[in-house]
Every structure is written in C-alpha cells, then in structure tokens.
C-alpha cells in the first residue's frame, strides 16, 4: 500500500509576525513547526503501516527549501520517502493552486491512501484536503477521529460531523483529513532524527508534474490577491472591577456589561 501524507510548515504560534511598511507583505520570525494537525496525519500513516503488508509512506510539502525541515520531522517519526515540491521561495496565495500541485504530484506517484491535516493553523483554511480529492476524483472524509483499513480496497472511518460523529466505509484510493483526538503523535527518537538528517529529500519542480505547466501555477494563475495586511486593532486595557466582596464586584460588572458594553 502506498500512503501519501501532505504536511505544511507553519509559523509557530509564538513567532513574531510583522508587517512590512508598505503593508503588502509580512515577515515571520524564524520559528516554524509542522502544522499541528499534520502531526496526526503522519502518525496515522505510521500506525497504518504497522497494520498492513508492504506499506510505504511518502510525505510531501509544497513550500520553500526551509520546508524540508518538516519533511525531516516526518521521516524522523517514521515516514519512508520525502518530496519537496519547490515553490522557489514564492508563496502562492491561492489554495487552489497548492491543491492542484499536490494533487498532480499524487497522480504522478500514485497512492492508495492520502492523509492531510484538518486545517493549517496559519491560514485556517481547511481547503487543501477536499480540493485535492476533487482534483484526483477520489472520495474524501474531513476531520476523521478513527481510521481502520478494512482491506486493500476499503477503509472504515469515524469522523466529526455537525453535532456528532459518523462512521463511513470508503473505497480506496481516498483522502482523509485528520482531527485532534485520532491519535497521540509520537516524539521521534534521537536515532530517528539522525536518520532523518541524513535522508535524501527529493526535490521536484512542480511545473514538471503531470498536467501542469508554469503558467498554471505561477502568480498570474492565482485567482485571489491580497490587497493589504493590517495589524489587529489593540484592545483597550482591561477595566478591573473593584468591590469589597465578590457580590459587589459581580453587581458592578453586570451594570457595566448592561450599560457600557451593551453585552447583556
């Protein structure tokens, strides 16, 4: 079985993010991680590999050279092969393009099973998984909480749906996005990290992939554009509600919420 995991390198939640003075671009402090939800995807692939015969896990990312770090993390965890779909340092804003590139790579290599994270914590889009599945014309299930391979051709998954959970059987090849709760991602072993540091990363120019050309994936192909970036307006400093007793404080709070904040 051939498994693909798509992983994204994202700014750490604690990284400082600054606007350039023209407000047209942003600068991110050099603190990056594998996307929180993608760790579940890698972990689930590794667990699946442990359960089926002849299984190989590939990880891929569309990103800059720096993004090889997340590929190495995935290898340290237990993935077998890694592919960098090199964006040549240029961040495409349009998720459709990213999804097309990833899908085209998947088509080129051929996979039975694809895992993505539920969403990226930087853009919070939750787009790529379902889009990739559409481009590959395979079924998808979002936000899965349990995963089992029934046989070579079928998987059984539990997923989060509006207000509950659903169990479905899905014919493979298919794509699944992982939600927190599905597993506990492992911390790679030091020996794993050493292996990963040595591992070869395959670098691919997306323009050379099946059905793609440069004009289809460069800036001109992007259907959306960013007009400006802004910093969020700062909240006014907190008003601490005084009072002799908790009861007084609460009364004062309620009055303020009613009259000043109009929140009640």
């Amino acid at each position: 079985m051939n498994i693909l995991v798509c992983v994204k390198q994202v700014a750490d939640t604690e990284a400082r993010i600054l606007l350039t003075s023209d407000k047209k671009s942003i600068e991110i402090e050099n603190k990056y991680n594998m996307n929180f939800f993608d760790e579940f995807a890698v972990e689930e692939a590794i667990r699946t590999k442990g359960k089926v015969k002849d299984c190989q896990i590939s990880v891929c990312t569309y990103g800059s050279n720096k993004a090889t770090e997340v590929l190495r993390t995935a290898i340290a965890m237990g993935a077998d092969k890694a592919y960098l779909l090199d964006n040549n340092g240029y961040d495409i804003e349009d998720p459709i393009i990213t999804a097309k590139i990833l899908a085209s790579f998947a088509k080129t290599e051929g996979f039975d099973l694809i895992f993505c994270g539920r969403q990226a914590i930087d853009d919070e889009n939750a787009n790529i998984g379902a889009m990739m599945a559409e481009f590959l014309n395979i079924p998808h299930v979002s936000a899965i909480l349990k995963f089992d391979v029934v046989d070579e051709k079928k998987a059984r998954v539990e997923s989060e749906i509006e207000g509950g959970k659903e169990i479905q059987e899905v014919q493979l090849p298919a794509l699944f996005t992982t939600q927190k709760g599905i597993n506990e991602p492992r911390v790679p072993l030091i020996t794993g990290v050493m292996k990963a540091m040595k591992a070869q990363i395959n670098i691919i120019d997306p323009a050379t992939l099946k059905d793609l050309s440069k004009g289809m994936i460069d800036e001109s192909a992007s259907k959306i554009s960013v007009l400006t970036y802004e910093t969020p307006s700062a909240r006014p400093t907190v008003k601490i509600i005084d009072g002799e007793t908790p009861e007084q404080k609460v009364k004062a709070l309620i009055d303020i919420l009613k009259d000043e904040a109009k929140a009640l």
Binding site: A11, E124, N127, E230, P232
Partner: peptide, 30 residues
C-alpha cells in the same frame, strides 16, 4: 475561494474580504 473570513465590504466595485491569519495576529484584506 477565500475561507474563514470575518468581514466583507463592497468598495471600488469589488468585494473586499477580511480574513485573519496566524490566529488573528495579522488581518488580511483580499
């Protein structure tokens, strides 16, 4: 597609979409 937006205005004959990034540390208009 623009996902997870929080506001939209119609201005200069286009729809401008407001979307927070990086957990709200940055706001983008697209």
């Amino acid at each position: 597609i623009i996902s997870d937006a929080v506001d939209v205005v119609f201005d200069e004959n286009t729809l401008k979409i407001k979307k927070p990034l990086f957990g709200g540390k940055i706001i983008s208009w697209m």
